[in-house]
């Protein structure tokens, strides 16, 4: 049974100020509720006291202003950032769609990039081979698939990235922003595929600024403000 439980998750990390020859800016506040300054170090409190639990079928929308901690929370759930305190318990295989062009090599062919990206995602080679044809077909790249990525337009590269990233069938899917890949016709196809994935995946956590998207995809909404949970409500309540 897939589930995600976060208990009092906090994440504090240190950022070292660069040495600069320019005059220090006196307008910079020493301490705010997110940043504390000590010497050359800035302590950033990215998340504080975040708790929630999700079970199979849940679609959680993460909302909040830029810098509220949405992407950070996704990365904590994915296991990239270990929480400073609190606990995250996850049952099920987690896949993530953060940066769709991550790991792409512009000198390699589209076909080779599918393999590389698949390996980076942790897929077995035979799994990638099995998905290869359907990925190519979905990307609508045709003969371009055997040309180096640098010959692609931005839209074509995005289509390929999207096709690879969404060829998986995840138990738990973490997504940072929706992916607006390609022309309107491809976007329609992309929306349909995302809808299918959303139905198949056990749990989805989606960070987005797109209100309509959250409303149509999610059943719960977690609003973050300065790394803290402002509210965790059903999507109907959030809409009101």
């Amino acid at each position: 049974m897939v589930s995600i439980t976060a208990k009092n998750v906090a994440l504090v990390y240190r950022v070292r100020k660069k040495i600069s020859l320019s005059w220090p800016d006196s307008r910079i506040k020493k301490d705010t509720n997110k940043v504390a300054v000590s010497g050359r170090n800035l302590q950033v409190e990215a998340l504080k006291d975040v708790s929630f639990s999700l079970t199979a079928g849940d679609r959680l929308g993460l909302v909040g202003r830029n810098g509220a901690g949405k992407s950070t929370l996704l990365k904590v759930l994915y296991g990239v950032y270990p929480p400073t305190s609190g606990q995250v318990e996850i049952n099920g295989h987690v896949d993530a769609l953060f940066n769709i062009s991550l790991g792409f090599r512009k000198e390699a062919t589209g076909r080779r990039n599918i393999l590389l990206r698949g390996l980076i995602n942790g897929w077995q080679k035979h799994e990638i081979e099995e998905r290869m044809d359907s990925i190519i077909e979905f990307s609508e790249l045709g003969e371009f698939i055997d040309l180096p990525l640098k010959a692609y337009s931005q839209g074509m590269a995005a289509r390929l990235a999207f096709s690879i990233a969404t060829s998986l069938e995840p138990e738990i899917l973490l997504m940072d922003e929706w992916i607006g890949a390609g022309d309107p016709a491809f976007q329609k196809k992309a929306r349909e595929r995302m809808g299918n994935i959303a139905q198949k995946a056990g749990i989805i956590v989606l960070a987005s600024h797109n209100r309509a998207l959250i409303t149509s995809t999610c059943n719960k909404v977690l609003e973050l403000d300065s790394g803290r949970v402002k509210r965790l409500v059903d999507v109907q309540e959030w809409e009101e």
């Binding site: 990365k75 994915y78 296991g79 990239v80 953060f98 940066n99 991550l102 790991g103 980076i120 995602n121 942790g122």
Partner: peptide, 9 residues
């Protein structure tokens, strides 16, 4: 950095 911050490798 890109892969370390974006994957679980």
């Amino acid at each position: 950095e890109g892969l370390i911050k974006g994957t679980k490798l």
